[in-house]
Design a protein around this nucleic acid. Sequence first.
DNA 1: ATGCATGCAAAACGTTTGCATGTCT
DNA 2: AGACATGCAAACGTTTTGCATGCAT
Lengths: 150, 150
Amino acid sequence: MTKAIKKFRKYIDEKNLQITRQRMDIAEVFLQSGRHLSVDELYELLKEREISAGRATVFRTLKLLNESGVAGEVDLGEKTRRYEVKFGNTHHDHLVCTGCGRYIEVYSGQIEEMQEKLCAEHGFKPSSHRLDIFGLCRSCGIEKKKKGYR
Amino acid sequence: MTKAIKKFRKYIDEKNLQITRQRMDIAEVFLQSGRHLSVDELYELLKEREISAGRATVFRTLKLLNESGVAGEVDLGEKTRRYEVKFGNTHHDHLVCTGCGRYIEVYSGQIEEMQEKLCAEHGFKPSSHRLDIFGLCRSCGIEKKKKGYR
DNA sequence: ATGCATGCAAAACGTTTGCATGTCT
DNA sequence: AGACATGCAAACGTTTTGCATGCAT
């Protein structure tokens, strides 16, 4: 956790921005949560912990965390933007359960390789990618069977 | 094209909805365009062709086209939602060029297979997925080199 | 004739921004 | 002191909705 904070501080420094109470608080709560948070969820989480920060500041800080590479944007097709901890986390894809809304983070070196190949075939220089698989997780799959859905 | 329209009509019928001039016009222009259209782009396209339809109706009809399986939502990380023709189009992934905004539709049976395997390993039942690779297309890659960017 | 569809304008979202005030350096 | 950050509320762009009217069945 501390390493990520350090990286954030460093980024702020390099950009000649200021280290403020809000930025540090927001970063810390975000990093501790370990979830894919929407701006509003983080804002509420801060309120619960009686840390005052305006919505706008949370937006602005998450943007900063994203730029610094500490956070990454996740877009699971919802209306809302989400952020996940990127620092110290290797790249991964998502298995998103449409039953319970939870997700599993997965990784396959082979898939990554195939993607490289695919890009090469098209003279395309990849810089990032996103693979989300939607469906039912183990427990939701069993649920549905039990209840006789579908 | 006609087959897709038929499927749409059938869907409307089954749902006991009504076949209206707007719905048919919107569906036709959408299917003919063959592009990933945003609601607004389609709305404008309709205006150009002097077909009158309110924005709200275009929204509602695209939602319907999506439900019917004729259209599919595409989310390339923009603020705006886009739709693509799904009917008669096999599943594909996207290579999205961050230089010119264009995209290439690609497909790899091997990647699909690996995804299946990945899901199986996690007891996950996939129903759909989305793979978007962002980067520079051939011509934008060359452009950048020429201009000495980066 | 009935009920669903349309179109407008208003509301509802998530997000961004302008500006006066407060804080870091 | 000076510059930058904050917080509020207003502005924004996209999508949704309420409601009177119009059209399909």
